[in-house]
Amino acid sequence: MAAGGDHGSPDSYRSPLASRYASPEMCFVFSDRYKFRTWRQLWLWLAEAEQTLGLPITDEQIQEMKSNLENIDFKMAAEEEKRLRHDVMAHVHTFGHCCPKAAGIIHLGATSCYVGDNTDLIILRNALDLLLPKLARVISRLADFAKERASLPTLGFTHFQPAQLTTVGKRCCLWIQDLCMDLQNLKRVRDDLRFRGVKGTTGTQASFLQLFEGDDHKVEQLDKMVTEKAGFKRAFIITGQTYTRKVDIEVLSVLASLGASVHKICTDIRLLANLKEMEEPFEKQQIGSSAMPYKRNPMRSERCCSLARHLMTLVMDPLQTASVQWFERTLDDSANRRICLAEAFLTADTILNTLQNISEGLVVYPKVIERRIRQELPFMATENIIMAMVKAGGSRQDCHEKIRVLSQQAASVVKQEGGDNDLIERIQVDAYFSPIHSQLDHLLDPSSFTGRASQQVQRFLEEEVYPLLKPYESVMKVKAELCL
């Protein structure tokens, strides 16, 4: 049975990233139509530049190519590739079939990587351009969430054990800070992308030097003109047959890092959902379990974690691919890159769409948070109580021993009897502590235990987050809708 299948058929496997999760716009960027249309555009740009620099290419040939950029006979191309065992030459023939007058000058002087690699770089750039505003929107939604809850005390956790208090907004800023680093890295790697350009079979530009009869300047002009037509500021000066596969490492490393950030955020949300302090959106008709109707599973956060793990592992592909590119190139890269580049971007696209949807509907339960604080705060307040007693004339050592005994009794009630923490009640009825009984409410005010959390939130948002989001103001209103 021949390899390949009808990918629109229910009898043929289709990647869930495309069929179930990723956005239509990201799927289109990695589609065959987008790819092969870009090949034709690159052939047109090459012909236009070659004509401008004096090669015998007519206006009629150029116009014929322009008129057929979208006229792609995919069936013919597939048949040609089956016959020739070469995808680029299959599309040269297919393009030439609908451009008979231009057929002889299509791909003039070029090698397969002229269309293959340059198209990949265009796709990487455009895919990054799709991700950047999506990530900015996630940051914006979380920034709104953090600002609104900047002063809401909550129990902090280290080692997932109760620690000092923080605020809900401050905790959210930990998430935002990681995503801001990801946004900066995505922008950097996007701006650092260079075009492969017009380089020939081993990167020496020998074929173009021959076409222009040894004119170095025209060869350099050709490279520059096509690079500018493709919208790049610069091209690699040095290439082998391909652009260095280190570029793929750079791009997928940034995406993998984004995956790590999203995994951490969504894990926190899942843990908070278990504590009943916070939940992701839950639709009115949504079913959490087929057997347990009360369940409210954090399905979206779980999906993000599941896909983020996949995204983090994909960076190993370009690392290994770059390491086995012998001399000017081997074909070890080809099949692998067809999979890992598309999957990385479709996965990143999915987790950003999902995280935006989550961040637009996060639900906080202040009463649950308050109750958990009441359970733990008495123990945390013991040092403040000791200091207040010393100020009232008591002995630190005597007070410490009193607190120690009462704390152990209260802990026994919590752990052995399943009761509430009654340390404060014990202190309130103990005559030894009568000098500070009137101060206990103040000493137990949760806001006095959150330090500068709310001020940190305000400063972080104003100095770091809002300036970073400013270039994306025009796209901030787009909502994230999930079908599944």
Score class of each variant (00 low, 15 high):
Ala3Asp: 14
Gly5Ala: 10
Gly5Arg: 13
Gly5Lys: 11
His7Trp: 09
Gly8Gln: 14
Ser9Val: 12
Tyr13Trp: 08
Pro16Glu: 09
Ser19Trp: 02
Ser19His: 15
Arg20Phe: 15
Tyr21Phe: 09
Ala22Ser: 14
Ala22Ile: 11
Ala22Tyr: 14
Glu25Pro: 00
Ser31Pro: 06
Ser31Cys: 03
Asp32Ile: 02
Asp32His: 04
Phe36Gln: 09
Arg37Phe: 13
Thr38His: 10
Gln41His: 09
Trp43Tyr: 08
Trp43Gln: 13
Glu48Asp: 00
Ala49Gln: 01
Gln51Met: 05
Leu53Met: 11
Gly54Tyr: 15
Ile57Cys: 10
Thr58Gly: 12
Glu60Arg: 07
Gln61Ala: 02
Glu64Arg: 03
Glu64Thr: 12
Met65Trp: 00
Leu69Trp: 02
Leu69Asn: 15
Leu69Phe: 00
Glu70Thr: 14
Lys75Ser: 13
Met76Ser: 06
Ala78Trp: 00
Glu79Ser: 02
Glu79Gly: 06
Glu80Pro: 09
Lys82Ala: 13
Lys82Trp: 10
Arg85Asn: 05
Asp87Ile: 12
Val88Asp: 00
Met89Asn: 02
Phe95Ala: 04
Phe95Ser: 03
Gly96Pro: 02
Cys98Gln: 05
Pro100Gly: 03
Lys101Gly: 04
Gly104His: 15
Gly104Trp: 07
Ile106His: 12
Leu108Ala: 06
Leu108Ile: 10
Gly109Lys: 06
Gly116Phe: 05
Asp117Gly: 06
Leu121Ile: 00
Ile122Thr: 13
Leu124Cys: 03
Pro133Gly: 02
Lys134Leu: 13
Lys134Cys: 05
Ile139Thr: 06
Ile139Leu: 08
Ile139His: 04
Arg141Lys: 11
Ala143Arg: 07
Asp144Phe: 13
Asp144Gln: 15
Phe145Met: 00
Ala146Glu: 01
Ala146Gly: 02
Lys147Val: 04
Glu148Ile: 06
Arg149Gln: 01
Pro153Ser: 04
Thr154Trp: 04
Leu155His: 06
Gly156Thr: 02
Gly156Ala: 04
Gly156Asp: 03
Phe157Thr: 04
Phe157Trp: 01
Thr158Cys: 01
His159Val: 05
Gln161His: 03
Gln164His: 03
Val168Asp: 05
Gly169Cys: 02
Gly169Gln: 04
Cys172Arg: 10
Leu174Asp: 13
Leu174Ala: 02
Leu174Tyr: 01
Ile176Trp: 03
Asp178Thr: 07
Cys180Leu: 07
Leu183Met: 03
Gln184Asp: 03
Gln184Met: 01
Arg188Gln: 09
Arg188Tyr: 00
Arg190Asn: 02
Asp191Arg: 08
Asp191Gln: 02
Arg194Trp: 10
Phe195Arg: 03
Phe195Lys: 01
Arg196Ser: 07
Arg196Asn: 08
Val198Asn: 13
Lys199Glu: 00
Thr204Ala: 03
Thr204Glu: 01
Ala206Asp: 02
Leu209Pro: 10
Leu211Lys: 02
Phe212Tyr: 12
His217Pro: 12
Val219Thr: 12
Asp223Trp: 15
Thr227Tyr: 02
Lys229His: 05
Lys229Pro: 00
Ala230Ile: 11
Ala235Asn: 08
Phe236Leu: 09
Phe236His: 02
Thr239Val: 12
Gln241Trp: 00
Thr242Glu: 09
Arg245Leu: 09
Arg245Ser: 10
Lys246Asn: 09
Lys246Leu: 09
Val247Cys: 00
Ile249Cys: 15
Leu255Ser: 00
Leu255Val: 08
Ala256Ser: 14
Ala256Val: 14
Val262Asn: 05
Ile265Cys: 05
Thr267Leu: 08
Arg270Trp: 14
Leu271Gly: 03
Asn274Val: 06
Glu279Lys: 15
Glu279Gly: 05
Glu280Arg: 08
Glu280Pro: 15
Phe282Leu: 12
Lys284Tyr: 13
Gln286Val: 04
Gln286Thr: 04
Ser289Ile: 14
Ser289Tyr: 02
Tyr294Ala: 12
Tyr294Leu: 10
Lys295Gly: 15
Arg296Leu: 11
Arg296Tyr: 04
Ser301Arg: 13
Cys305Arg: 10
Leu307His: 14
Leu307Thr: 15
Leu307Ala: 13
His310Cys: 11
Leu311Asn: 03
Thr313Val: 09
Val315Cys: 11
Met316Ala: 04
Met316Thr: 07
Asp317Cys: 13
Pro318Met: 07
Leu319Lys: 03
Gln320Glu: 08
Thr321Asp: 04
Ala322Asp: 13
Ser323Glu: 09
Trp326Ile: 07
Asp333Ser: 09
Ile339Tyr: 01
Leu341Met: 01
Ala342Val: 05
Thr347Trp: 14
Ala348Trp: 04
Thr350Asp: 03
Ile351Phe: 09
Leu352Val: 12
Asn353Glu: 01
Ile358Val: 04
Leu362Gln: 00
Val363Leu: 15
Lys367Arg: 12
Val368Met: 05
Ile369Val: 09
Ile369Gly: 07
Arg372His: 06
Arg374Lys: 02
Met380Val: 12
Met380Lys: 08
Glu383Val: 12
Ile385Met: 14
Val390Phe: 15
Val390Lys: 14
Gly394Pro: 15
Ser395Gly: 07
Arg396Phe: 00
Gln397Val: 08
Gln397Arg: 09
Cys399Gln: 05
Cys399His: 00
Lys402Trp: 00
Ile403Pro: 04
Leu406Gly: 10
Ser407Ala: 01
Gln409Leu: 11
Ala410Met: 13
Ala411Val: 14
Ser412Leu: 07
Val414Ile: 09
Lys415Val: 07
Lys415Pro: 07
Gln416Thr: 12
Glu417Met: 11
Asn421His: 00
Asn421Gln: 08
Asp422Leu: 06
Glu425Ala: 11
Glu425Tyr: 09
Glu425Val: 08
Glu425Cys: 11
Ile427Lys: 10
Gln428Met: 09
Pro435Gln: 11
Ile436Leu: 06
His437Gln: 01
Asp445Thr: 13
Asp445Leu: 05
Asp445Cys: 03
Ser448Pro: 10
Phe449Asp: 14
Phe449Lys: 14
Gly451Asn: 00
Arg452Leu: 06
Arg452Glu: 12
Ala453Thr: 08
Ser454Ala: 08
Gln455Trp: 13
Gln455Pro: 14
Val457Thr: 14
Gln458His: 09
Glu464Pro: 15
Val465Tyr: 15
Val465Ser: 04
Tyr466Ile: 14
Pro467Gly: 07
Pro467Met: 04
Leu468Phe: 05
Leu469Gln: 01
Leu469Trp: 14
Lys470Ala: 11
Tyr472Gly: 02
Val475Ile: 02
Val478Ala: 15
Lys479Gln: 15
Glu481Phe: 00
Leu482Phe: 15
